[in-house]
Every structure is written in C-alpha cells, then in structure tokens.
Amino acid sequence: MSSIVDDYLNEQKDNVIYQFKIKHDKDKLLKESNSVRYNAINEKNLERYKRLGFIEKDTISYDVEDKDWFNNQKDWKISSSLDNDSNSESERLHTIFKRLLQVDNLGPRFLTQKEGADVHYHIDGEILCAINFLVKGKRTPISFKDVGHFYYDVALVNTNHAHSVPKQIGEDRVLFKLRIKQMTFKEAKEKLVANENLRELWN
C-alpha cells in the first residue's frame, strides 16, 4: 500500500513542481529587487489594475473563507515592471528563458513576503505557470494543496494548482518570477527537460 501511495504522491509532485539548477547571481538579483516599487497583492489593487487595463482578467482565485485576507493583506507584494536593462541579472535570465521556451515575454517581476506573514492558498489567474528564483528567505517552502510542501532554489511551479506559502521565518522572502501565460506547466516542463541548452547552464 505504501508504494502505491508513494507513486501517487510522486506523480502529484511531478504535476506541480519541477526543480532544476541554473547559474545565476543571487546578490545581483537581491540588489535589483531593492530598486523597484512594490504594491500589495490584494483585491483593491487588483481591481485598480484591471480598471486601468494593466491586467486583462481576474489575476487570482481563492476559497471564500480567505476573502477577508485577500481583501486586506499588505505583507505580500509584487513589483512594478522591470527595466529591460541588458546588464541586469533579471533581464539576462529573462532572455535565456524566452529563448528556451520560445516566447516573446515572460513578464518578469519580483515578489516579497514580509517576515512573519503567510500567503493563503490561491490560484494565479493571468498565468498558467512560472519559473521562480528564491532570492532570499530559504526557510519557508511552497505548499501545494493536497500534494505537500517543497523547498527549492529554482523551480518551474504550477500556478494553476492551489498553492500557498507558510509563515515566513527569520527574514523577508524575495522571489524573482518569470510568469508564463503562453503554455501549461506540463508543456513548459517538457521544453525545459528536453532543451539541451539548459543543461549547459546547470551548475
């Protein structure tokens, strides 16, 4: 029975997260994350972005019992658009993955989560999956509903599956995120696994 359960959990894991290694400069990313403006990810701000035409549709869905949290939270934030500075680490990584995934734009952003804050379960609306780089805050995993908790440094994550982040411990959490609208998690994973160019960038 345990092997059947293990096989099921491994299959579920394979559907929500794909961890890999790629050379990147975490110090440069952290410095770049400090030079952009942030806004809280809550309903007030999301409605304003939708009204102004910055987003095309609802960008987040969640259980009704979490409505108050998503209406009022101020400790989980997303950055403004990043400059296309070819000398920046964020744009270097953006360029690499645009080529690997054969897309024009991955909407790079930084996200922050304040120490002591958690992020409730939700599904991202505008994107299907994302490549996350953990820039700061190693002690907190990502949690996928009914699957489990996973620690990572760099990973493709299925943002179309309900996910959360437990209370951030020790320091603020900073992510660099490449947001994929053009393909599903499965399709993006297949491209990353199959692409020989990615292997050259590991380690």
Rank of each mutant, 00 (worst) to 15 (best):
S88Q: 00
K177Q: 13
F70R: 05
K136C: 04
K177D: 11
R92V: 08
D58Q: 09
L156W: 03
D27V: 13
D14W: 00
Y49Q: 13
V165M: 08
R179F: 10
S143P: 00
H149Q: 13
E89D: 04
K23F: 13
E196N: 14
F150V: 07
K136D: 07
K28V: 02
H120I: 00
K23Q: 14
G137L: 00
I55F: 07
V64D: 12
K21H: 06
I60R: 00
A155W: 07
K23Y: 12
G148P: 06
K186S: 12
H94Y: 02
S90L: 00
Y18K: 08
N203T: 15
D25Y: 05
K138N: 14
V119P: 00
T95I: 08
R51W: 09
A155E: 06
D27L: 13
E126G: 09
N132E: 14
D68G: 04
V147C: 07
G53T: 06
L100F: 14
S80A: 05
K167C: 14
R92Q: 12
M183Q: 06
E190R: 15
Q73N: 09
E89W: 01
W202V: 15
N197W: 15
L175Q: 05
D7L: 10
I127N: 12
G137P: 02
S143H: 10
I22L: 03
V174L: 10
E171P: 08
L9T: 12
L100Y: 14
K23W: 10
T159C: 08
S81F: 02
R99A: 14
K74Y: 08
G107W: 12
Y121C: 08
K31M: 01
E171V: 11
D124H: 06
N87H: 01
E11S: 12
K98V: 07
V119D: 02
P166N: 09
T140E: 02
G53D: 05
L82R: 00
N195P: 11
D66Y: 07
K28A: 11
F20T: 04
K114I: 08
L178K: 04
G107I: 08
L128N: 08
K191A: 15
M1S: 15
N39G: 10
E56F: 11
N71P: 05
I60C: 03
H24V: 13
Y18N: 01
E187H: 01
E200P: 04
A194R: 13
I78K: 10
T59I: 09
E89T: 02
V165W: 05
L52F: 04
K181N: 06
S88N: 05
I123D: 04
I60W: 01
D75R: 10
I131K: 13
K28W: 07
